[in-house]
Nucleic acid binder design. Structure first.
Lengths: 159, 159
DNA sequence: CATTCCGGTTTTATGATGCAACCACTTTCC
DNA sequence: GGAAAGTGGTTGCATCATAAAACCGGAATG
């Protein structure tokens, strides 16, 4: 199982996120879902993965509220898997992984798929973390701060 | 092994990225590296993971050019692991995972660490993918386009 | 009806992971 | 300077997750 007890008690949001989608396949499934895939067979054909682990991953993503099963769209009796709002909120993460991959895993002229703006067809701008006032910030401009939960309860340690 | 032959030939940048850092631990190591951790023992203590797989992950991250070993910083004979530019370029991905986790895996008042702007101490703004002209775009405003590797001057295609 | 398709589950091998012990080398302490 | 402790791993071994393939029941298709 993926999301059982590994980092579940961690108070670092990165760890909890990875507990839900940190395996090799889940984010590829989510990527395909952003591309419009919805059926079990579509995912299986696109990813070429074993059907049993696809079933397990879909179950896990549904259990985490990232996908949900919806009745059908073409009238058949089968289910479809659709992104929930929580799943759609992964869009920046997918974009980040895509841009990082484009920049660092391809030769300048090598073929690769690319995410473009529907209106205009131009590639997206690079993702840039920004401060609250809009300034662009990098790794050295930020720091992790521990935030305790308000009602009493002593602050925990370890991010 | 992580980065062997799984998605290596894929032409999707997301797949290649996940081939390098798609396991449960690598991104947590990178996160800790952003937080300033550099020594084997620091990572091992922070993550609580087995030393043999930490060694394997560090080897893999170094092999992928995400970390590099540098001689020392305190004069001792030991090595340290530092982020390369390629590794630092993962910053938006880590920020995205962190914000997604903050938004969807914590109760409103639950304790969690938070990434704040060094200058001012306020939380970062939400990551927002933007089109080339600066417009904020969502999943429905973008489409994946296949780009073949053509030798020279590609004529821009309009729709 | 018979056949194929769809969406899985059940086996069975195999690879990865986690744990503990061990080890070479360094640094520290007395 | 010798013992003890720390640092940075490696090696076996048990266990768990993963992958491939076979199988299966209901639904659609001819």
């Amino acid at each position: 199982m993926v999301g059982r007890t590994t980092f579940e008690s961690a108070e670092c949001p990165v760890a909890r996120s990875l507990d839900a989608i940190g395996d090799s396949w889940s984010l590829l499934i989510v990527r395909d879902a952003f591309d419009g895939l919805r059926r079990f067979g579509e995912f299986q054909k696109s990813l070429g993965m074993a059907k049993n682990i696809l079933a397990a991953r879909l179950r896990n993503l549904v259990a985490h509220g990232i996908l949900e099963t919806v009745p059908a769209s073409d009238g058949s009796v089968y289910l479809e898997y659709a992104l929930t709002p929580k799943g759609r909120a992964l869009f920046p993460v997918i974009v980040g992984l895509r841009q990082w991959g484009e920049d660092h895993f391809f030769e300048p002229r090598e073929a690769h798929s690319m995410l473009v703006d529907t209106d205009g067809g131009r590639p997206l701008a690079r993702l840039q973390p920004r401060a609250a006032d809009g300034r662009i910030v990098g790794p050295d401009d930020t720091v992790v701060r521990k935030v305790a939960d308000l009602p009493a309860r002593a602050g925990r340690r370890k991010r």
